[in-house]
Structures are given as C-alpha cells and as structure tokens.
Amino acid sequence: MPARATAIAAAASPTPAATVPAEVVPFRPPVRPVLLRLRERAARVAGVVLPPLIVLGLTLLVWQILCASPKASLPAPSKVIADSWDFIVDPFYDNGGVDKGAFWHLIKSLSRVAVGYSLAAVVGVALGVLVGQSLWAMRGLDPIFQVLRTIPPLAWLPLSLAGFRDAQPSALFVIFITSIWPIIINTSVGVRNIPQDYRNVAAVIRLSWWEVFWKITLPATVPYIFTGLRIGVGLSWLAIVAAEMLIGGVGIGFFIWDAWNSSRISDIIVALVYIGIVGFLLDRLIAAVGGLISHGVSAQ
C-alpha cells in the first residue's frame, strides 16, 4: 500500500504537515456486513430452539438405550418409527370403518370438542355473569358449583349414557360438563371485579341493564373470560380422549384403545404425540384469540 505509506511519511515530517490543510475524511457509519447480521439472528433463534431440541434428542437417546433390548416391554423410538411408518407418513388414508389416518381421528375428536366446548363457553359465560352479578345467585349456585367441579370427567359418562342413551351426545356432554366450571368461575370473578368506576359511569349516563351488560360488563370481563376459556379448552381435550376410549367410533381416543387391543404400542405412542401437539395448539389458539379481543383492556 504505497499511498498509505506516503501519508504516514507526510504526517511524520513536521513542516509540511503544518501548512497542508487536514485531509477531509468522509464519515462512513460502520456498515455491518449482511453475513454478520444474519449470523447474529441465527444465534438468537438457535438460543431459543436449540435447548428443547437438545433435551428432546437426549430423551430419545436414553429411551432408545433403555428399550433397545428385544425383551423390553415398550418399543424404542427407532422401532416406533419403523412400526408406525404408514400411520406417520399418511395421515389422510381412509380404509373405511375406524381404519383411518391420524388426521381423520383428530378431526373427529376436535369436532366433538368444538361442539361441547362452544356450548360450555356460552352457558358458562352466561352463568358466570349471573353468579357474578347477583348476590343471591352466587349464594345459591356457588357451593353447588364448587362441589360439582371436582367430579372427574369420566365419572359423568355412565350417567350421561343412561340419560342420552346414545354415545355421541354423551361424549359431548362429558366435554361440556368438564370444561364449563373454570369458565363459570373465572367469568364470575371477572364480573365481581369490575371497577366501581365503570359502574358509576354507567349509572351517570343511565345505561339500561342490557346496555351495561353489552357495553361494560362483557368488555370489562373479557380477560377473565379468556382465562377460563383457556383452562376449559385444556380440560375438554383431556376429557374427549378419555370419553372416546369408552364410547368407541372414530376419534383419537378410541384409536388409542383400539391400538391397545391389537397390541400396536407404537401407534399409541405416535397418537400421544399428536394429542399433545393438538392440545398445545388449542391452548395457544384460545390465548391468541383472547389477546386479540381483550386488546386494550389488559393493557391499561
């Protein structure tokens, strides 16, 4: 680099340096190379993604080692994949009857949850508002709710089968009765916690009961309602798998029972993974909807 060498030489000699005006160096903000920025972002993503992947890998490894012997009672991961390869790669096959791909089982279970859970949401919010708003309704209903909510989902099944004399509505009822309690309880707490300020505003502008309900009570209670709905959707997913085991037909719960009866342990393991992932997604879905609707209320 000859140019640089002369510049240094010029600076070193005092006499010309004093007369020559300082060189104008344009300011260049340091531009980080694209590669570097990409690497930083990759590092951030890796920081989030890697730990669970490592734990998952280790778990599979330990599992593989533990169940490697041919005498092991449970299949190792490699065996699960080998056994259930068809079930994993083609979730959409339909050979009639209950011999369907995982997608159809999950959809059937989800549709049951959708019906039972929607009913529970509507009735639960309505009852929650009633209990939250009326002292007498609370005194009358709350103790009963507190007792009923501790009954395990499956304990309701024989009774509902006896009542409905049909498997389908019984399954829906079990979902309904399982998921309704947290919705009622959280809604009523939300209604009771509406700030007196909001009630005062409603009183001053003389909103009617109905207007108070729509314009004050519901919006003010939305964050509480969605807390209840989130707990409820998790419970309903727990309940449907258990209920389907008993009532049979298409559905991920019965799929597991069916696999057990034909000793397809690998299929059961795959189904468990699916159930876990779907349950997780349901929870996230309700949380996301709640976040969207209660925008502003919780951010006060």
Binding site: V201, V222, Q300
Partner: peptide, 10 residues
C-alpha cells in the same frame, strides 16, 4: 368528572 378519569379502556 371522576378523580381517576374512569375512562373505559376498551
């Protein structure tokens, strides 16, 4: 006019 404004946050 309330002391803590009492606006409806939604």
């Amino acid at each position: 006019v309330f002391q803590n404004h009492s606006l409806l946050p939604w």
